[in-house]
Amino acid sequence: MITKEVVEKVAKLSRLELTEEEVAVHAEQLNKILETMDILKQIDTDGIEPLAHVLPIQNVLREDEVGECMPREKVLSNAPEQADGMFQVPKIV
């Protein structure tokens, strides 16, 4: 059962600010969704490997060779705010 506190904690981790009303809605929806996930508990998965990659691809590596960087104007072309060739952000603390 997901409580209001859990929803608030998850929202904080996700960097989402929810109103009290939204917290209640999310709690209700998440609980409903997670209820349907409960059937997973019925399956015995002992000894089953978790499958993170569907294709048996491994060791994909590249050589240590320098390629092209982007011109700085391009790097910053979508920057909401910039100064001195860098991305400007509000104060950290």
């Binding site: 050589e63 320098v66 390629g67 960087c69 982007m70 790097v75 910053l76 860098m86």
Partner: peptide
Amino acid sequence: NCPTDFGGAPNTHVCPVCLGLPGTLPVLNK
């Protein structure tokens, strides 16, 4: 493939991958 050299002007050793642009993907340096 961006160089690791120190001393470049800010944001000049940057490509779509290390800038984390949407859609970019990492490939490991051997």
